[in-house]
Design a protein around this nucleic acid. Structure first.
Length: 694
DNA sequence: AGGTCTGAATTTTTT
DNA sequence: ATTCAGACCT
């Protein structure tokens, strides 16, 4: 049927990397047209999938591009393809599944497991960063990278940059120098978009063009400091893996032979660097299946480009393109709006989503007199929906930026509506969590200057200068603890106490991570109480950390995992998930990617907020905002409310915002209905908030 | 000289 | 809420 009679290679096994010298002869079995004579399939793929999905799942070897519209069963297709490959005789350990988050990799593999059983466990799945981490620990030696290297998260990278900036004396200039966060952003952009510093600065940070020279100097210092200390930031994981694949022919072949089938999810959100990695990983076979939706590319700020998905066919000549256009999520009225919004985009793979769910309420565009009126509308409507039987966890409120929901959060609490917030401050980024982890890190990697600095600054009487001197001395010595003890002055006592704790952890390496967390915790607790008035809440976070540590055999694994896959949930809401775990979801649109709800509210659909004024200058950024709107709208299954407050003064631009998002300008009027909010009676007291609207 | 404290200025989205 | 510079204290 959909088979082409291309030869299909059955793998005669190659278990591990130890086999690289052994000669493995492929024996080619011709693929037959009759499925009955092929490998025994336990699943009836044709029945479980629609025709488009089936074609993509059973695609033969070679590059394939699957354009999967929103809600078209993208994950389902990917999961079935993995299952299909395994059932066709591909060794699971030869399959590499790259996803956007580690969580989605886990979920997918779990679903594969549900289809075909435990064989799925040997599939290698994860994010680009986690796979790079794994490969570098094994093959990094060819570049002088020890397997015990430390991964720096964004915060660590910023701290190191700040440190070097002071050392180079760059902060005493009269002109304003970019802050550490901005500098890290610039450097990251360079790596991820494969552009030089000058190009990036002139292009996107032209107001800092004066500092180009200084930024270059600092960048070189940063690179050097990382290499010397065995520190890798997120970008290094990818950059260095590429270097391994480029410089070491043998390793490239070994790895490419290891992963003979590569599947990539969310391809529209990959950057140039990642595209190159895939190109190199697949050098020996071109068995690459990428899945994505160019209309949902929303990570350009992080260096991603939807050009990757547009240009895939030229990177992998002969690629077959499959399109999934049947939407299983939303009703037709919602899809009609979504289709009209994206229709205006100048560049895209043309596709037209359709659904069999023809009936449903029209999406509503709601004008509110101000931010608070908007909040009251949402809260009131949610109460109504709950009355109608919509469970709270089927309701989501999406915003462009996380602070857009501040006012609403207050209103929801006031109405007694429970909610969870996704995509705020991460657990792992909380200062106290980082403090505790820093202690563990110096134990694993005594070269880790950034963590040392953090640890030392917590000791009473130690400031930037002393910390720096100590770190410099410790890196030279074989026994860092000796340095701490021999330090004189006011901080002497604190430093030797620190040395005692850390040395204990180092010497007795048979301790479990849990026990090690415990010891540091005891030492750190007084410091925590001293620094933060709200320490009881923070203690709960540390307990959480303690629990996480239980599932790890060693510190190295624990720390690496934590840097790459931060547990979600913000620091403070540790709450034992209310009586019934029904909670409204409050989320940024970015962290709502791939999710769906019965009912979705999109807040601040006002021109100037969404699209934000920052994007007005460039067409590219505006188009990104449009796609973001498309993503937001297509999260809804049945109910959709777009709300916009009017007469809002925007400080940053000095504009009065009063018009709905420009993305709705060309949408036909019959596609949505318009609601105007009217106060019950003549109530001026908005604070009360139980007035009626129509 | 170096550490600590205060006050002023700045905020999109995040693996 | 966080970062950074400058004043003030040891």
């Amino acid at each position: 049927m959909l088979y082409s009679p291309t030869a299909h290679v059955l793998r005669l096994t190659a278990q591990s990397d130890a086999n690289m010298d052994r000669i493995i002869k492929p024996y080619i079995l011709k693929r037959t047209l009759d499925q009955n004579q092929g490998p025994k399939l336990s699943l009836d793929y044709a029945k479980e999938l629609n025709a488009q999905q089936y074609a993509a799942v059973t695609a033969v070897d070679g590059p394939a591009l699957v354009i999967a519209g929103a809600g078209s069963g993208k994950t389902r297709t990917l999961v079935h393809r993995v299952a299909y490959l395994i059932e066709s005789g591909v060794d699971p350990s030869h399959i590499l599944l790259l996803t956007f988050t580690r969580k989605s990799a886990e979920e997918m593999l779990e679903r594969v497991g549900a289809l075909i059983g435990s064989r799925s466990q040997r599939v290698c799945g994860g994010t680009f960063h986690s796979v790079a981490n794994m490969l570098l620990r094994r093959y990094g030696r060819v570049l002088g990278i020890e397997p015990g290297f430390t991964i720096m998260d964004r915060g660590d990278a910023e701290d190191l940059i700040a440190l070097l900036r002071v050392q180079l004396g760059l902060n005493e200039k009269d002109k304003r120098f970019p802050r550490k966060g901005t500098i890290a952003e610039i450097y990251s952009k360079c790596e991820n978009t494969l552009r030089g510093l000058e190009e990036v600065v002139l292009d996107e940070f032209s107001h800092f063009a004066d500092h180009l020279e200084a930024l270059g100097k600092l960048q070189r210092a940063y690179q050097l400091a990382k290499r010397q200390r065995q520190l890798l930031d997120y970008d290094d994981l990818l950059v260095l893996l590429r270097e391994v694949l480029t410089k070491d022919e043998q390793t490239r072949l070994t790895i490419s032979q290891q992963f003979r089938y590569i599947l990539v999810d969310e391809y529209q959100d990959t950057n140039r660097l990642q595209a190159e990695l895939i190109r190199k990983l697949a050098t020996t076979h071109d068995n690459v299946t990428v899945v994505g939706d160019d209309s949902q590319s929303i990570y350009a700020f992080r260096g991603a480009t939807f050009r990757n998905i547009m240009e895939f066919p030229s990177w992998f000549p002969g690629a077959t393109i499959y399109k999934l256009e049947e939407n299983y999520r939303s009703t037709q009225p919602i899809l009609s709006l979504a289709n009209e919004i994206i229709q205006e985009a100048p560049e895209k793979y043309t596709k037209h989503l359709f659904t069999r769910k023809l009936d449903g309420p029209l999406p509503a565009l709601v004008e509110a007199a101000g931010e608070h009126a908007q909040s009251r509308f949402v809260a009131q409507k949610i109460l109504e929906l709950r009355e109608e039987g919509v469970p709270l966890n089927e309701i989501a409120i999406l915003v462009r930026s996380s602070f857009h929901s501040f006012d609403l959060e207050i209103e929801l609490s006031r109405c007694g509506l429970p909610f969870v917030k996704r995509g705020g401050i991460k657990f792992i980024e909380a200062a106290h969590v980082k403090d505790l982890l820093a202690h563990l890190r110096v134990v694993v990697n005594p070269q880790d200057a950034v963590s040392w600095h953090r640890v030392l600054m917590l000791v009473e009487g130690v400031g930037p200068k002393k910390a720096q001197d100590l770190v410099a001395a410790m890196v030279r010595m074989t026994n860092p603890y000796q340095v701490l003890r021999s330090s004189s002055g006011r901080s002497g006592k604190g430093l030797s106490a620190l040395a005692d704790v850390l040395e204990n952890l180092t010497v007795s390496d048979d301790l479990s991570p849990t026990e090690q967390v415990n010891r540091v915790y005891e030492y750190y607790l007084p410091i925590l109480k001293d620094h933060h008035d709200d320490y009881p809440k923070r203690i709960r976070d540390l307990d959480h950390l303690h629990t996480i540590a239980e599932s790890y055999p060693g510190l190295t694994e624990f720390l690496a995992d934590l840097a790459l896959a931060p547990p979600d949930g913000s620091a403070s809401e540790v709450e034992p998930v209310g009586r019934d775990d029904e909670q409204v979801v409050l989320s940024t649109i970015h962290s709502a990617k791939g999710l769906e709800w019965q009912c979705v509210f999109v807040l601040w659909v006002v021109d100037g907020k969404f699209p934000s004024v920052f994007s007005f200058n460039s067409d590219e950024e505006l188009e990104e905002e449009r796609r973001l709107m498309y993503v937001a709208v297509t999260r809804a299954k049945r109910h959709l409310f777009l709300t916009y407050p009017i007469n809002v003064y925007d400080k940053s631009s000095g504009m009065l915002l009063s018009k709905p998002s420009r993305f709705l300008d060309h949408v036909s009027p019959q596609v949505f209905e318009t609601l105007a909010l009217i106060e019950e009676g003549h109530g001026h007291d908005w604070g009360r908030g139980y007035d009626r609207y129509i």
